[in-house]
Design a binder for these strands. Structure first.
Length: 496
RNA sequence: GGUCCUGUGGCCGAGUGGCUAGGCAAAGCUCUGCAAAAGCUUCUACACCAGUUCGAAUCUGGUCGGGACCUCCA
């Protein structure tokens, strides 16, 4: 089984093979911690989390680098040269690094809620000013950077003469060079298409560092080039991020790294699509973001209820990472129910037992299960088709439930098939998809109390004292615990 | 304006030219003290118009609609 990934750089689905056998280097553009993360931010981090998990499952040792952009870059190039982070800091009367810390903590907390694996290295832009400066110096030395009034720009026209600037984003270099935008500071650049490597800091700028060109701060794109190179080398396997970063961020990153390292940085570029609200991308400019804290608590006008982080994770897994997904409360509700149903089937499955060495009486069903299970890996190998794996799981759910309800005979499938099924569910649901139960961890004490209540209720039912049995069931329901009377007299319960 | 993506049933969403996606919702049945859950069954599709093909949701062209990027952006 071999993995195929869609490479945005070549626009083709390619066979994946890592540069160093057995190892994968993956860089993902992390958050800008100048504000609270919103639902849109959840997508890349959940996407690359299952990418990371699947690669690990395939046996690769993955070094996953995801940066924290805490240096802030200007809002609008050239116009006011205002540092994003420091601008907000002034408004909130906070020390910039205090703000950075606050939102970094919040981001980490959200990642924990989503059960995202921590990256191997999480470098910060402010911690790598030295590396960025030396990279800029090298770009100047190579003849592709020039200094004007304490700022340094990348010479796109010169680069484009010998390199394919615009390949990743499908941009046409001549159009970029001709694009006219009347912005202050533009006259510093030799060409409109040039981008900043270093910006001279205005006096009111709080975040500033000394450099060979005077006090200033790094351009947006250089941090990723510097940190990716430092931790993953001149050429690494995967570079990921949101589609909206293709231009100018990733395009510029390629240019910088190519000049410094004499090699294109990443072998495979993977981009996730956007989350939209009413068909519009969630973003600052549209003023339509739903913050993650609002998602979890349900405190946003567009939400009808709070949504569990796992519901959001599942919602994202239900569609392909390269398709846009439109947010709606209804869609999330559907996901919540679906996840609950799937997880209950998974719980049922783990409790099923068959005698060792049992042969399948229903060979057709047995074969069907094996096929559905084997497709898990095939689908994931095909550019991470998480939605298809989930569809197969939902096809297996009724079979699992039927085994519990004895609609399917206990001798129908072989013990090896059952074990295969159990392992596959555990591996994919928990290890690869990183999903967890909506009801949280098991509590032995609660378990004991519930067993007691179930016993009492059973006694009442035997005496046909339905008033008591219904009271127990209803009262429990009102505090969020559901009791289910199953076929064979067993009683199960679940935390809603 | 330029570049690119996209248009699937009540809703969300997979879709490799021919073979059921799946989920949610809805309806019926089975089970059940009642319920819930579960199981079985059913329903509503491929924006429009041409073309290629024995055959197209899937390929090509056009029309209309939606979106992304071109500026910070996940």
């Amino acid at each position: 089984m071999s993995l195929k990934v869609y490479n945005s750089y070549t626009r083709e689905k390619e066979q994946f093979s890592s540069i160093t056998p057995g190892h994968v280097g993956m860089y993902v553009c992390g958050p800008t911690v100048s504000g609270e993360s919103h639902l849109g931010h959840a997508r890349p981090y959940i996407t690359f989390d299952f990418v990371y998990r699947f690669l690990t499952h395939k046996g690769y040792k993955v070094r996953y680098v995801r940066n924290i952009t805490d240096a802030g870059h200007f809002e609008e190039e050239g116009r006011e040269a205002e540092d994003k982070v420091s601008k907000k800091a002034l408004l909130e009367k906070l020390e910039p690094m205090e703000l950075v810390q606050k939102y970094t903590n919040l981001f980490h907390w959200a990642m924990l809620q989503f059960n995202c694996v921590e990256p191997s290295i999480e470098p910060t832009a402010t911690g790598h000013i030295v590396e960025q400066i030396s990279m800029i110096q090298q770009i100047i030395a190579e003849g592709y950077g020039y200094e004007v009034n304490g700022s340094v720009y990348f010479d796109v026209k010169k680069y484009a003469a010998t390199h394919d600037y615009g390949k990743l984003s499908g941009r046409i270099i001549d159009d970029l060079l001709e694009t006219t935008r009347e912005l202050d500071g533009q006259e510093e650049k030799r060409d409109k298409a040039d981008f900043a490597l270093w910006k001279s800091a205005a006096p009111e700028h709080i975040m500033r560092w000394k450099s060979p060109w005077g006090e200033g701060y790094p351009g947006w794109h250089i941090e990723c080039s510097a940190m990716a190179t430092k931790y993953l080398g001149a050429e690494f396997d995967i570079h990921g991020g949101g589609m909206d970063l293709q231009f100018p961020h990733h395009e510029s990153e390629i240019a910088q790294s190519t000049i410094c390292n004499h090699h294109t940085p990443a072998k495979y570029w993977i981009h996730n699509n956007m989350i939209t609200v009413n068909g519009r991308k969630m973003g600052k400019s549209y003023n339509n973001q739903i913050k993650l804290t609002e998602m979890f608590t349900g405190t946003h006008p567009l939400l009808t209820q709070p949504f569990h982080p796992m519901t959001i994770r599942f919602f994202i897994l239900q569609s392909h990472y390269r398709s846009p997904i439109d947010f709606s409360s209804e869609a999330l509700q559907a996901s919540e129910k679906a996840l609950k149903r799937l997880w209950e089937a998974y719980d049922v499955l783990q409790k099923l037992e068959l005698p060792e060495g049992q042969q399948a009486a229903d060979t057709e069903l047995d074969a069907k299960i094996i096929e559905l299970v084997q497709q898990f890996e095939e689908f994931m190998d095909d550019d991470f088709s998480t939605a298809k794996v989930l569809a197969n799981m939902f096809e297996l759910a009724p079979i699992i439930n039927s085994m519990r309800d004895k609609h399917v005979g206990p001798d129908a499938i072989s013990s090896t098939t059952l074990n295969l099924l159990k392992n596959a569910f555990k591996t994919y649901l928990e290890d690869v998809f990183g999903l967890q139960s909506l009801s949280g961890a098991h509590d032995d004490k609660l378990d004991g109390v519930m067993q007691l209540l179930i016993e009492i209720r059973k006694g009442a039912k035997t005496k046909k004292d339905y008033a008591t049995s219904d009271k127990i069931r209803n009262e429990l329901a009102s505090i969020g615990i559901a009791i289910k009377d199953e076929k064979d007299g067993n009683v199960s319960w679940s935390n809603l």
